[in-house]
């Protein structure tokens, strides 16, 4: 796969080099459908699934659905999987990339909006926000309703992030993003926090001088998902994120 030099938009126009990165860990049941949905809308876009040492048939299902697959020899975590994808895209000379989750939580129709935001230069990185509504009257954009504790966490990090970068950020924990090559180079480097890249990345990128643009997207509630937000993980997550933000601010 070249960085899929051909990126057809809806008008069938040939466009820049773009690639969609999908980190996946044990998503065998969902990954196929996610890839097919993307291919329905963007038949010739490059799709790279980063199989993060899955124990199920994620790799096989992704290959079947027509994606390119890169496999970690063992589980290294979401952030590392993303970074492997970034490094691949960088090597392949991609002009811009989009990233989304492999569980079908992100509505693929918004890939184009995200990529176009970056392509038009409105931001170096476009972050898909589930809390901005594209058009309040449209019934399909029902507000996303996270569970209470999760919502609390989101509001907390939204406030902190907005305060630090002095601009309103509604959804800093969103993994639905697009970025240009300059950002790609940065996130492929050593400074990228590979354990839980999240609100801290937004702050780091802001401090590195990149422009961040939020774009309204639709997300579905994830079903039967044993995500990272279960058990003791949220406590660790909260702690890690606060520490990461703190040292980011101290680093200069």
């Amino acid at each position: 796969m070249k960085c899929l030099g051909k990126w057809l938009n809806k008008e069938g126009r040939l466009d820049h080099h773009a690639l969609i990165l999908i980190p996946a860990y044990n998503e065998g049941e969902r990954i196929g459908r996610v890839i097919r949905e993307i291919k329905d809308i963007f038949p010739s876009i490059g799709i790279l699934v980063i199989d993060d040492g899955s124990k199920d048939d994620t790799k096989l299902r992704a290959l079947e659905a027509g994606a390119q697959v890169i496999s970690h020899p063992f589980n290294l975590g979401y952030g590392t999987a993303l970074q492997t994808g970034y490094r691949y895209a960088l090597r392949k000379g991609c002009e811009e990339i989009a990233q989304m989750d492999g569980d079908g939580q992100h509505d693929p129709t918004f890939i184009e909006t995200l990529l176009n935001t970056v392509r038009r230069g409105e931001g170096d990185i476009a972050v898909g926000s589930r809390f901005l509504t594209p058009g309040p009257t449209r019934p399909e954009y029902l507000p996303y309703r996270p569970p209470f504790l999760r919502k609390l966490g989101m509001i907390f990090f939204r406030t902190i992030t907005s305060m630090i970068i002095r601009r309103k950020v509604t959804d800093p924990t969103s993994g639905y993003q697009a970025m240009n090559r300059k950002v790609l180079e940065w996130v492929s480097g050593e400074k990228f926090p590979t354990d839980y890249p999240d609100a801290d990345v937004i702050i780091m990128l802001h401090r590195a001088g990149f422009r961040i643009k939020e774009v309204p997207v639709r997300m579905f509630p994830s079903k039967d998902k044993k995500s990272m937000h279960s058990g003791w993980k949220p406590v660790y997550y909260l702690f890690k994120m606060l520490l990461s933000i703190l040292v980011t601010l101290m680093r200069k």
Binding site: S71, L76, Q83, T84, Y88, R91
Partner: peptide, 10 residues
């Protein structure tokens, strides 16, 4: 190392 391995494998 694991990342480089995965990239090289692909």
């Amino acid at each position: 190392l694991a990342q480089q391995f995965a990239l090289l494998e692909l």
